[in-house]
């Protein structure tokens, strides 16, 4: 008798250098525990996340995509996070209308001092994606 192997989501995280990446670093140096499901890619700003990065990950079968930036008003480049927010709104609208799961894309503001918030976000997202199940595109070869 075989049991269904438990589903461990793969989450790709695009984190801004100044806030969320540093927050993730703080979570690590503070030895906070969070699920090992997240693969972090550091960018200089959430405003530097071109939709193509997120879409590539999604279409390649990533189960979740997390974009992390500074809280409103805290962007190192003044307004990158505000622009990121609009891009994410547009991207989710397009994903939804094209028949894909826009709930797999998360945007969160996490500051450099919020190690706990980073750990909590990853836990929350991992649980939510487990609930959703694997990205169906992972198995589709004709994408």
């Amino acid at each position: 008798m075989t049991t269904e192997p438990s589903f461990e989501p793969k989450i790709i995280a695009f984190l801004c250098n100044w806030c969320t990446y540093t927050g993730a670093d703080l979570a690590g140096t503070s030895r906070l525990q969070y699920p090992p499901n997240v693969r972090i890619i550091r960018l200089m700003c959430s405003g530097a996340v071109d939709p193509i990065y997120v879409l590539k990950a999604d279409l390649a079968g990533a189960d979740g995509i997390l974009i992390g930036g500074c809280h409103p008003g805290d962007c190192h480049y003044q307004e990158g996070n505000y622009k990121a927010r609009r891009r994410v709104v547009a991207m989710k609208e397009i994903l939804k209308n094209a028949g894909f799961d826009e709930e797999r894309v998360w945007l969160r503001w996490i500051s450099a001092s919020e190690g706990q918030r980073f750990a909590d976000t990853v836990s929350e997202m991992t649980a939510a994606i487990k609930e959703m199940g694997p990205n169906p595109l992972k198995k589709e070869w004709a994408v």
Binding site: E79, Y82, R85, A90, L107
Partner: peptide
């Protein structure tokens, strides 16, 4: 163009 502008207080539910 919508993607080069923004308002500070908008779309909070997305985040």
């Amino acid at each position: 163009l919508p993607l080069i502008t923004f308002k500070a207080d908008e779309w909070s539910e997305v985040v």
